[in-house]
Amino acid sequence: MANENEKLSVWTSISFWRRSAAWVTGFAVILLIWLTFNTMGQISMGTDADLKKAAQEHRVVSRVPGPTVINYHIDYKMSKKRGHEVPVIGAKEPFFGKEWSEKEAAALLHLGKLTSQAKNCMNCHTLLGNGAYYAPDLTKAWLDPAWQKGGPMQAMTNTNTTEEAMAKFLQNPSQYPTHARMMPNLGITEEEAKGLVAFLKHMSSIDTNGFPRNFSKTVEQFKTGGTNAH
C-alpha cells in the first residue's frame, strides 16, 4: 500500500524534476538571450547626431554616448521623473584645447580604454562600481569637485583645466599625493594619459541609473570648504 502511494506521488519522481529543470533552465536562457539583444541595442555607443540633439535638449538620448561626448560639457543632475541623478549633456567645451573630430575622438577613447586595461586600473579602483576597493570609484571621477576649477588638484598640478590636471597627475601620480595611500607610477605616457582622461570623461556621461547616488552632495560639501586633500 505505502509503496503504491509513493510511486504515485509526482513530488518524489525524478522524471518530474528533471523535466522541470530542463524547462526552467532552457526558458531562462532564452529570456536572457532576448534581454541581452534588447540591452545591447540600448548600450551600444550613440552617434554624434545623438549628441547634438542631447545638447539642445539638455538631457541624454542614448545610455552610452559616442566618443565625441568629450567635446561637450557634462553634468550630473537630479531628475524628478526618474528619482535619481542623471547625466546631462551641456554646451560644447574644448577638450585639451580643441574640438575632436569623430575619428580622432574614437581613436583617443580606444587608446584610453586599452590603457586602462594595460595598467590594471581595475585592481585598485572601481569602474562603474566594479573592481577593487583600495582607491576611489572612477565612474564619475571626471565630475569630481576635487578636479574642478578651484579644487586642490588643479592647484597642485599647476594646471587650468580638469583634463590637464588629470593628465598630469596620471603621468606622475606619486608626485601629487592626496592621501598617505598613493597611486603608483605606472609609466603612463602623455598620449596615454590623454586617452585615459577621454575614457574617464566618456564614462561620466553614461547613464548609470543614478549610481553613485547623492554625488551632488560631494559637490556641495566641497563648496562649503570641506576637503580632505592636504
Binding site: 582607491a135 576611489p136 570609484d137 564619475k140 571621477a141 569630481d144 569637485p145 576635487a146 578636479w147 592626496t178 592621501h179 595611500r181 553613485p212 547616488r213 547623492n214 554625488f215 551632488s216 552632495k217 560631494t218 559637490v219 560639501q221 566641497f222 570641506g226 576637503t227 580632505n228 586633500a229
Partner: peptide, 16 residues
C-alpha cells in the same frame, strides 16, 4: 556613500 555622497574626498574620509 550616504553621508558624504561618494566622490574622491568622501572615499578617503571614510577610509580614515
Amino acid at each position: 556613500r550616504a553621508e558624504l555622497g561618494a566622490g574622491w574626498n568622501a572615499f578617503f574620509v571614510a577610509q580614515d
